[in-house]
Design a protein around this nucleic acid. Structure first.
Lengths: 336, 336
DNA sequence: CGAGCTGTTGTAATCGATTACACTATCGAA
DNA sequence: TTCGATAGTGTAATCGATTACAACAGCTCG
């Protein structure tokens, strides 16, 4: 019958009221009379009307969209956080847009998202973005940093205390009797990696244990860098009896290579990871690791950005979620 | 200075031209004179103008958005596919919206996305959605099924030949000399799980090997279901000497539990997975698995949906991407 | 009985870009 | 010189909902 999708005008005609009334019936039902409300409902049914979001967005000057800027979408670390974000955003009527900050020519694309007509809010998971772009001004939507942060940028941040997590790990290893403890680092410029390394150094120093830079192996959070770390670790004549890895993926890569070389975990080396991704409970040995409440991080981030978008000026600012050491089978007392 | 964000009218005034000209200068530069183009460019610079997407969307009757309906966002299997999708969508100017099809009350939310004013295209990763909702009509945007599909729904689909993948796995195990081969199933209603199970059965039958239903262990793609499968497998007096798992996560859960019980892989049981997620190359033993080209799947899906959105009526329809068995260390000849 | 509410509805302006159509200037061909 | 084609630009309608404002009915209160 209708050659095009029904508009609010069609509903109004069928219901015998004005478009204003239809609009009100749909968005604030409490201001229209019961009879009219019913008529509108029926007309909506009859016409199969669905609202045109673009028109509403234009008029209301918002997009109902939240953009998540994620460094490397392929990293499974983010998936559970995203699930948490989505679980809060969706019921509130917001759309979750995902943008990968890696890859060629993304700068342009990111810049595009940074204005209000694109998104009402921004969740930034990447601490390496140029801080200038994220400064709050009239043009750009509110920003919440998640996990990572940018030094000197005062923006609400949801994160964990990474240094404290590193201390937990080191305390656990030291408590088991290890006195020679190394660290597999995350990527050089990364704030998480830095905080974890700094926490590890501090924990060693506090206990009077050696802080040897040649036991801090370079890496980048990836499996492959864990594997390389294992090669370097093995090659060292005086190698640490335990290592704390800046991520679970590093730990998996490390353990895999160590085992492939015929050594045993935890017998020959104890290993602690960071993140507690699902899988590490099931590898052999099950990985002792620092558990990040990933879903809670996502949920918290979503709640804060919603509060900001809906006008709450100061919705709590920085939020630091608790970390926890999960002891499994990859750590034990050193051999002797 | 300006109390509000600059509009095209402001640019027009500064450049001394009409809004129509500004619009043309920005979207089809070839139709305006070089001088005007330059003036507009300068004016855009001067005013800091950025286009208002909502207005453009309203007028052009599109949203530049593609929605991905994903069952369980937390599943790392999807992350690399999403990276592929994003890598194609972003340069083409489309936004990627992600919706989790699990969780409470999502039906309403999904329904909302299914009209043209919300998204220009739909990528469906969930084969359990009601087929009716996805039937193409004037109201709903084009749909591409990815990985999973819905029986009887003629919609372009990007997938792999799951049954063939299962055959590859079984052929590999049979080739090693196994004659008692089991299968850890995916979730019951899932088309992927069904296709893989059916392929596994067929491969066994073709070779005259026993097809024993009690060697088909129930599961749901998860690590935990792999662990449970291992418990059941161990409890069986006459257990198969090899198992093919419907996903890598199942395989990891299975291997972990088997090893925890003191048995060895592949000595006591050979294991083949499905997907080739990054991690399984690094566990011990490295997992032999069927490699899905996940990034390529994402890229292909994005290309097809773009073609559909831009009007190509028949952009190739079904596309089946190649699978490959990757032999690692979790499979060997049976003990005797 | 009239002023002042309250509750309900309609009219029309508005959000900001795109684009159909009309118009002018310029140039080559007849 | 005139006609037509072409290139470049402006005017104003349009996309579809929201909402400021006004209008009006029915009531209460003095």
């Amino acid at each position: 019958m209708n050659r095009h999708t029904p508009r609010i005008r069609d509903v109004a005609r069928v219901a015998g009221v004005s478009t204003a009334t239809v609009s009100r019936a749909l968005s604030k039902p409490e201001v229209v009379s019961a009879a009219t409300l019913e008529a509108v409902r029926a007309a909506v049914q009859a016409t199969g009307y669905t609202i045109n979001q673009s028109a509403r967005n234009l008029r209301q000057r918002r997009t109902m969209g939240v953009v998540a800027l994620v460094p490397n979408l392929a990293n499974p670390f983010f998936s559970r956080i995203m699930a948490g974000v989505s679980a809060v955003l969706a019921p509130a009527g917001y759309n979750l847009l995902v943008v990968d900050t890696q890859g060629p020519g993304v700068e342009r694309h990111i810049a595009r998202t940074l204005d209000r007509s694109r998104a009402d809010g921004l969740l930034v998971f990447d601490g390496t973005l140029p801080a200038d772009d994220l400064l709050p001004d009239r043009q750009s939507p509110p920003v919440v940093m998640v996990c990572e942060w940018i030094e000197g940028l005062a923006t609400p941040t949801i994160r964990v205390d990474n240094a404290a997590g590193a201390r937990l790990a080191m305390a656990h290893l030291a408590g088991l009797g290890h006195r020679q403890i190394g660290h597999l680092l995350g990527p050089e410029g990364n704030v998480l990696a830095q905080a974890r390394a700094q926490g590890a150094r501090a924990a060693l120093a506090e206990r009077g244990l050696p802080v040897r830079e040649d036991w801090f192996f370079p890496g980048d959070f990836s499996l492959e860098s864990g594997r390389r770390g294992a090669c370097e670790w093995i090659a060292r004549p005086d190698r640490p009896t335990a290592v704390f890895c800046a991520s679970d993926e590093i730990a998996c890569g490390f353990i895999g290579e160590v085992q492939r070389r015929g050594l045993r975990v935890p017998k020959d080396v104890s290993v602690v990871g960071f993140d507690n991704i699902e899988l590490v409970a099931h590898i052999t040995p099950a990985l002792t690791t620092i558990c990040q409440p990933r879903r809670a991080i996502g949920e918290a981030a979503a709640k804060v950005i919603i509060a900001l978008m809906e006008g709450d000026a100061a919705p709590g600012g920085h939020k630091v979620l608790p970390l926890e050491l999960i002891e499994r089978d990859s750590t034990s007392s050193p051999r002797n």
